Amino acid sequence: MVCEHSPDGRRIDKNNLSKELHCGGDPLSRYKHKVLGGDKGYLQLLQFEVGQLFLANLGGGLGYLLRRLCIAPLFSGCGKNFILGRGVTLRTPGNITLGDNVAIDDGTLLDGGTGELSRMEIGDNVIVSKGCVVQAKTGLLAIGDGCDIGAHCILTSAGGIVLEDNVLIAGNCYLGGARYNMDRLDTPVMDQGIYSRGEVRVGRGSWIGAGATILDGVKVGEGAVIGAGALVTRDIPAFSIATGTPARVIRKRVE
């Protein structure tokens, strides 16, 4: 659907978080819906709570083993050799599919979202480093095989995020998000609705430097390099090196 005030974008139906937390049904039902989604039962909620209460911060190899045994069944699919670090926050794991040899480091938020199009797919041999926020809020978030996401990155999917295979992302990067309408002066910006200019797609074998930001609707071509601190607002061709704010291509990797 095209947004009335943003003809180049698509309206995003965003649930009001305050209403989700405080309105509709009893508190336990609201909590279950928020952490597991509406299609999960109270037995699964109990399993989740046991994992979070007793195992979330359990150290050593025993902690890794017990978290895998308790939490892995809550995902839509989970491959072998799954590693879940300490202090990981999970939301709606039933919308998340994990491949083989996936490692989620300490203090990460992994959120499968609650929207109709929310879905997270993580491929084989993927590393999500410490303190990341990875959210399939209202769209697909797909991470291809062999990707390595540095510490404290934020990936928040409104119109979709796709990382193709073997993408390397340094620490403190931001990908995705959405934009607020702001045409009306009589209404707070936060109440004017949001829209997206489309998915973020990062081509296979690309490298995103530390602290870079890639906005919605941007496509980074195969094998491209984005310099540290760059603000990427437009498409970057394959095998290009782009730096600056806003980012521009300074040369090709191969002439």
Score class of each variant (00 low, 15 high):
residue 114 T to Q: 15
residue 129 S to D: 12
residue 111 D to C: 01
residue 136 A to N: 13
residue 124 D to S: 06
residue 120 M to P: 07
residue 139 G to V: 03
residue 119 R to G: 06
residue 100 D to K: 00
residue 114 T to M: 14
residue 126 V to R: 07
residue 140 L to N: 14
residue 129 S to C: 09
residue 137 K to E: 15
residue 140 L to P: 15
residue 138 T to N: 09
residue 101 N to G: 02
residue 118 S to D: 06
residue 122 I to D: 02
residue 121 E to V: 15
residue 100 D to H: 04
residue 130 K to W: 05
residue 102 V to E: 08
residue 112 G to T: 00
residue 133 V to E: 14
residue 109 L to K: 01
residue 125 N to A: 05
residue 103 A to I: 06
residue 134 V to D: 00
residue 109 L to H: 05
residue 141 L to E: 14
residue 123 G to I: 10
residue 146 G to V: 11
residue 127 I to S: 11
residue 123 G to N: 12
residue 128 V to E: 11
residue 135 Q to L: 05
residue 116 E to A: 15
residue 108 T to W: 02
residue 145 D to W: 10
residue 107 G to A: 01
residue 131 G to T: 04
residue 137 K to V: 05
residue 137 K to S: 12
residue 142 A to T: 13
residue 114 T to Y: 12
residue 101 N to H: 10
residue 115 G to R: 03
residue 128 V to P: 05
residue 102 V to A: 03
residue 122 I to S: 01
residue 117 L to R: 10
residue 113 G to H: 07
residue 120 M to H: 09
residue 114 T to K: 14
residue 120 M to G: 09
residue 107 G to Q: 02
residue 112 G to R: 03
residue 118 S to H: 04
residue 105 D to Y: 15
residue 148 D to W: 11
residue 113 G to K: 05
residue 103 A to V: 07
residue 122 I to H: 02
residue 100 D to G: 00
residue 136 A to R: 13
residue 102 V to T: 03
residue 127 I to V: 09
residue 104 I to G: 06
residue 128 V to S: 06
residue 113 G to E: 09
residue 115 G to I: 04
residue 123 G to P: 08
residue 103 A to Y: 12
residue 101 N to P: 02
residue 114 T to D: 15
residue 135 Q to F: 04
residue 124 D to I: 03
residue 139 G to E: 10
residue 136 A to Q: 13
residue 132 C to N: 10
residue 147 C to A: 05
residue 148 D to Y: 10
residue 125 N to W: 09
residue 130 K to S: 03
residue 99 G to C: 03
residue 107 G to P: 00
residue 136 A to D: 10
residue 108 T to K: 01
residue 99 G to D: 03
residue 123 G to A: 13
residue 130 K to R: 15
residue 101 N to L: 05
residue 130 K to Q: 08
residue 102 V to F: 04
residue 126 V to T: 05
residue 140 L to Y: 10
residue 106 D to G: 05
residue 145 D to L: 08
residue 108 T to D: 03
residue 146 G to W: 10
residue 133 V to L: 14
residue 100 D to Q: 01
residue 139 G to S: 14
residue 146 G to E: 10
residue 134 V to A: 00
residue 134 V to R: 01
residue 141 L to I: 05
residue 108 T to V: 15
residue 119 R to Y: 08
residue 133 V to S: 13
residue 108 T to G: 00
residue 140 L to F: 13
residue 122 I to P: 02
residue 137 K to Q: 14
residue 118 S to Q: 06
residue 141 L to S: 11
residue 109 L to P: 02
residue 129 S to E: 10
residue 128 V to N: 09
residue 145 D to I: 07
residue 103 A to C: 15
residue 134 V to E: 01
residue 139 G to K: 04
residue 126 V to Q: 09
residue 111 D to E: 07
residue 102 V to W: 07
residue 123 G to S: 10
residue 148 D to C: 11
residue 147 C to T: 02
residue 139 G to H: 09
residue 116 E to P: 12
residue 133 V to K: 08
residue 101 N to W: 07
residue 102 V to L: 04
residue 133 V to D: 13
residue 104 I to W: 12
residue 148 D to K: 12
residue 126 V to S: 06
residue 120 M to T: 11
residue 127 I to F: 12
residue 138 T to F: 08
residue 117 L to D: 11
residue 123 G to Q: 11
residue 146 G to A: 11
residue 142 A to C: 11
residue 129 S to G: 06
residue 118 S to C: 01
residue 115 G to Y: 04
residue 102 V to H: 06
